[in-house]
Structure formats: C-alpha cells, structure tokens
C-alpha cells in the first residue's frame, strides 16, 4: 500500500474563542498535528449544518465544530444554537453512514490554547484510526452508459 494515511480535518470555528485559542497555541509555540484547516466564522452559531455536510462531501475525513463555552459566547448565546443543532446532526451523519467520531463539537475559549492542541491531536488520531472516509468513491453515482439497456 501507499504511504500512511493523513487525516484531513476541517475546523469550523468562531472568531472570538476558538480561533483566538488557536492563535494562543501559536503565540505559545505549542505544537500540534498539521492535519487541520480552519475556516473562521464570527460565531459558531453561523455554522450551517450544510457546511459540515459540504466538508464531508468534499472529502474531509473529519469535521470539528468549535466555539465559545456555553455562557461565554461573544454574541450572548449564538453557540447555544450550535449546541441544539449538534445532536440531530450527529444522528443525521450516522444515517448517512459516517462514523460519529468523525465529527466533534468542542468549546474552546480564547485562553485555552492547550485545549485546542489537545483536541486537534486527539481528533487527528481518532480519525486516523478510523481510516479514510473516502466519501466520493463510496457514494459515486455514475450514470450507466447508454448501451447497458437491453430490454426490448
């Protein structure tokens, strides 16, 4: 087989807590797995469930949604909506055949650079253990060629 599988994880995170927490991990020169790519929104409440589906559709092996701790939302309670959406989203992706461990919701504050590092490292290993999701190949809907029809 080819070289070791490197998980690809999309992080949908809020500007005020988790993005800043990731910044803090940087300024503190902490080290973590290079498997995540952050997409910044202002509030985790902006994370439309379709963004998660899109990441899986694109080929992500994991998706992390992260925002301020409940009660500490920069927008009072935007993250509360994320918290409410998440359980249904979990059920939904399971119905699509995506392992629950490929998606996580974490509250990471601007002061928790270490938590960000821990979550990223842990999730990277979790997803690595699951192996590639390989969504595109597993859901390809190739339309059969014209000649396959033989009914008369």
């Amino acid at each position: 087989m080819s070289h070791e599988f490197e998980p690809r994880i999309v992080v949908l995170c809020c500007n005020w807590c988790t993005y800043a927490g990731a910044d803090l991990a940087g300024t503190s020169r902490m080290k973590y797995a290079p498997n995540v790519r952050l997409v910044r929104v202002m509030c985790s409440g902006r994370v439309d469930p379709s963004f998660v589906l899109r990441a899986f559709q694109d080929g992500a092996d994991g998706v992390l949604i992260a925002g301020c701790h409940p009660g500490d939302c920069h927008y009072i309670n935007g993250n509360l909506k994320t918290l409410r959406r998440y359980p249904a989203l979990e059920t939904l992706i399971a119905q699509f055949g995506i392992e629950p461990d490929r998606m996580r919701l974490e509250w990471i504050s601007a002061a928790e650079g270490d938590v960000f590092v821990h979550v990223v490292n842990e999730m990277t290993e979790q997803v690595r253990a699951l192996g590639p999701l390989d969504w595109k190949r597993r859901t390809a809907m190739t339309v059969p060629a014209a000649e396959s029809h033989t009914a008369g």
Partner: peptide
C-alpha cells in the same frame, strides 16, 4: 461571511 464564501473556503481547504 456569506454561504458562497464559506463553501468556497471549505472546498479550498485541502487539495481534495
């Protein structure tokens, strides 16, 4: 932070 912009970012996050 409109849908198109964010989806474009997700699409570009990795060379899928």
């Amino acid at each position: 932070f409109n849908d198109r912009q964010i989806l474009a970012q997700i699409d570009a996050a990795f060379l899928w």
